[in-house]
Amino acid sequence: MPVALMRVDDRLIHGQITCAWLSFVNASKIYVVGDQLANDPITAIGIKYSKISGIDSYLFTVKDALENLRKFESDKIMVIVKDPETALSLVESGIKIDWLDVGQIGYKDGRKQVAQTVSVNEEEAKTFIKIKKAGVDVIYRQLPDHSPSDFIETLKNHFGNLEV
């Protein structure tokens, strides 16, 4: 499968991606995936601004992303999604990954801070658990240099046992 790393990060492509993850997973393309995101003009422009030489970045809807991921089997692609729902729909559509990297979800009303850089609400927490149930380890890891920690455990500590 061409996915070198799938990461949940609501800042999309930023310093931790360009200066750490890309070279670590040896990816040559970035797919930023999200249905709402793909229709947002400012995000599209931001991604054009962030063009790094040697790396092609694309902004896709889930449907387009799936199509391209299937077409370019031999590429090494880093997939960035803004929210767990998009990650879940990619996983459910048959994109194979061993683990999902949870990097950054910013705080807003209704969310609870559960890790240094991650805040989620109950709905999002449930989605992460569904991803885990689909056979994907959900790991909190900001940078390659950080030691990975089980994000599902973290969620249990904050939300108790959630029924999904």
Binding site: T18, I42, S50
Partner: peptide
């Protein structure tokens, strides 16, 4: 909000690469 959310990540990617690294 959209302007900031859309640009903060990508510009950080460029900024960190140029200014800090």
């Amino acid at each position: 909000k959209n302007l900031k959310a859309g640009l903060m990540g990508p510009l950080a990617g460029v900024g960190d690469a140029i200014w800090w690294f």
